[in-house]
Amino acid sequence: MKARTLSVWAARRALGAALTVLVATVVVYGALRLVPGDPVVALSAGRRLTPEQIEALRHRHGLDRGFLQGYLSWIGGVLRLDLGTSLNYQTSVMSLITGRLGVSGLLILYSATLAAALGTAVALVSAVRGGVADRIASVLAAAATATPTFVASIALLALFSIGLGWFPATGAGTGPADRLWHLTLPAVAMAIAAFGVLARVGNAAFAEQLGREHVVAARSRGVGTAAVIRRHVVRNALAPLLTVVGVLVASLFVGTAVVETAFGLDGVGSLLVTSVSRRDFPVVQGIALIGIALFVVVNTLVDLVLPLIDPRVTAGGPRR
């Protein structure tokens, strides 16, 4: 009975996610049509094109048909994993992006791990200890949240790369260890703001649980401090924390644009910056789609995991 409720609920969540992606693709496609003047001018971005090339562009983006037909032909290509051809590189957008996903993916994962581990640790210590520790942590978190990624990048480069020479300033390195070493500074630069958000949200979540009566009750039953914190405080704060981590991971994808440019990394983020400045519309569309897909997939995964953490999540849904 319960398993059925859960699967119905999960199916609804998945359907919702699919709908979100669908709407987003309409927006991504529609952006081209919203460009003032002839979209082909935007697509060609001032390059000299032969009439045949222009015609091919028109056809590829469905500009020779109505909006719906144009969209359907474009989305049909997307579903076959054909994101079109880059005007700048003259190669398939898909291969441009997948060739760079390795660096960007590792960077996001590295950065998210740093932010999640340190943010939660600081949040927990400050919530449990209170007093001075709490005040220091809250100032630290506010400062971290308010630090823009490009400022952090420049500061880290100046200090650890140019000043101390501990980390390389550019490149992604070769081999696993070398790559991690190369990605450390960019990962830290991206993690700073995410760390600040997590330290604040985590502190609030932990502090709320610490004040709950079930925590007082657990203490009244002689459960040790470490066990109370593990089973009743951290366990119960996981749900809100995981939700925030999901949003942060997706926003880190956007952050790669700044960091990869600053640290000379050849990833999806720097590709986006280059493509925007060269007005390489198909690449920008492709990266936007990937970003949206990542955002929706991560958040749907979080939503699907939540009932395992807090069984009350599904209880509010359809009645048994």
Partner: peptide, 29 residues
């Protein structure tokens, strides 16, 4: 608190951890 004195609180919904099973609550102590 473990073996000689125990407390029953006012609101059972607030005094049992909502995300853990009733069995865990009983065996924890």
């Amino acid at each position: 608190r473990r073996t000689r004195a125990a407390m029953v609180f006012q609101d059972p919904r607030a005094s049992i951890n909502p995300v853990r099973r009733v069995g865990d609550y009983l065996t924890e102590g």
